[in-house]
Amino acid sequence: MDSILFLIFAAIAVGCGLNLVLQTHPISSALSLVGVMGSLAVLYLLLGGEFIAMAQLIVYAGAIMVLFIFVIMLLNAGGERRGRKRLWAPWAGAPMVAAIIGIGAYLIQRAAPRTAEVTFGAFQHGNPSDIGTNLFENYVLPFEITSILILIAIVGAIVLARKEIE
């Protein structure tokens, strides 16, 4: 059962990922990315990451990607023009990506012992309570300094994108 679910959602994720890379229109790419995120959220659930799966939906799919779509719509950007000089890209790119994936897969196959298998429900520490405990005990410093990051992001968005009032 776990394998079937994995295969289904992995196929969706890869399909959407490919679509993201191959589509010429940013909106299509954005939605493909949402698809990837959604299927990844399901995979997180399979791996026992309930909290992170929901965070993935809320933060990534629900906020970040909406922002992307918003900007794409705002700029009303059309599809990519196909420049002649970039014709080599797919030809060079596809084998390159395949090669990288191949090497990566080989390494990973060596890395993970065959006994390591994923069973739904076997990992019990992904609930919000456990995560919160770990987060606020061991990772309290990174958590706190992340607030600076968010403040910067707010300031930056305002500085760069606000309308001149004068």
Partner: peptide, 16 residues
Amino acid sequence: HGPAPLSWYLILSAVL
């Protein structure tokens, strides 16, 4: 039918 090997997840990650 069985559980999915962990390496599948990692390979998926690498592919993405």
